[in-house]
């Protein structure tokens, strides 16, 4: 394939990856930023979202859009409930100690995976997209008869993939509004800046933590629901997105919403682009080392203000 269509395809795929990644990473970033803990089980919330989406969608007959819509509305709050329960039962009691939280969330990860394996099983199951039309993308070329359109072989995307990108943009805008325009956002930012002072000013830090942990999980679950018509729900699917979103959060700079989004775009698109020029596994190696070197030379991340 010629270079231009190839790059366009890489870009489109990169945008889909970035869309899902930014939602998930934002959830991790909120938890990380406000509560200062690494939630190793974050990827499992993504998985739970996808698995619940399959469960919910399979209850519906008829047009796939109904099942998907129901999943979109029900799966994230359900996942948030699980997260809040985990917060109340475990994280709160270990006082959000960074090291103990890592062990506790690894334990949580095992528990969630095993329960999913026992109930949902080891299969990768698809959820039908509400709509999925293939769109061929035309390019312009200069011929003897002047400008004309042509349709390069294989260059195309699907309506659903475009919808995922749109949905992510809308959701991210919504979160940004929540953070900057509402009382809850204010409480959250205050807690993030200085926990002790926030407490002194009468902010119910405990409840803010619970809400943030739930919101983070809900965002991961939402990403899971959005991806499941493209990929399949599988009980081990949370692993790689966890690593990627972790990277995104650090590269973007802790607690920076724009940073997180820029980093998600960077990681998603570079992944698609580098594979144009190198053999796929070599491309992954280069991208991975690239992330390491960004941090080595910019330890605060791209948008970070201070180290943690």
């Amino acid at each position: 394939m010629e270079l231009v269509p190839y790059l366009i395809l890489g870009l489109l795929e990169g945008l889909v990856t970035a869309a899902v990644l930014s939602l998930m990473a934002l959830g991790l970033s909120l938890v990380f930023g406000v509560m200062r803990v690494v939630n190793v089980a974050h990827g499992e919330f993504f998985m739970v979202g996808a698995v619940l989406a399959w469960q919910i969608a399979s209850l519906f007959e008829g047009h796939p859009a109904w099942g998907f819509l129901a999943a979109l509305l029900v799966a994230p709050p359900l996942t948030a409930c699980i997260a809040v329960a985990a917060n109340q039962l475990v994280l709160k009691r270990i006082e959000y100690d960074p090291e103990r939280t890592i062990v506790a969330t690894i334990g949580l990860l095992y528990i969630i995976q095993q329960v999913t394996l026992m109930t949902y099983g080891p299969d990768a199951r698809p959820v039908e997209a509400p709509f999925n039309q293939r769109l061929s993308i035309p390019l312009v070329e200069w011929t003897e008869r002047g400008l004309s359109l042509y349709w390069p072989w294989g260059l195309g995307t699907t309506t659903y993939k475009l919808a995922v990108i749109m949905a992510a943009v809308m959701l991210l805008t919504g979160i940004w509004m929540l953070m900057t325009r509402t009382r809850f956002g204010l409480l959250m930012r205050a807690t993030q800046l200085d926990r002790e002072t926030a407490q002194a000013f009468g902010i119910p830090v405990g409840r803010v933590y619970a809400a943030v942990f739930g919101l983070g999980a809900a965002l991961a679950a939402l990403a899971g629901v959005l991806i499941v018509p493209i990929q399949q729900a599988h009980y081990l699917m949370g692993h790689d997105p966890l690593l990627l979103s972790f990277i995104v959060v650090i590269i973007g700079g802790l607690g920076s919403l724009p940073g997180t989004i820029v980093a998600a775009l960077l990681i998603g698109i570079s992944d698609g682009m580098i594979s144009v020029f190198f053999s796929p596994t070599l491309a992954k190696i280069i991208a991975t080392l690239g992330v390491a070197f960004v941090l080595i030379f910019m330890p605060q991340g791209l948008f970070g203000k201070r180290g943690l």
């Binding site: 394939m1 889909v16 699917m237």
Partner: peptide, 30 residues
């Protein structure tokens, strides 16, 4: 470790007559 594949398909040459594919793991359907 890959979970999305479209970006690799442009490497398929135009004069290909047969695609031979084999994939394993949970992402096969994708």
């Amino acid at each position: 470790t890959e979970s999305s594949f479209t970006k690799y398909f442009p490497k398929i040459p135009r004069d290909t007559e047969v695609i031979y594919h084999v994939m394993v793991g949970p992402a096969v359907l994708t």
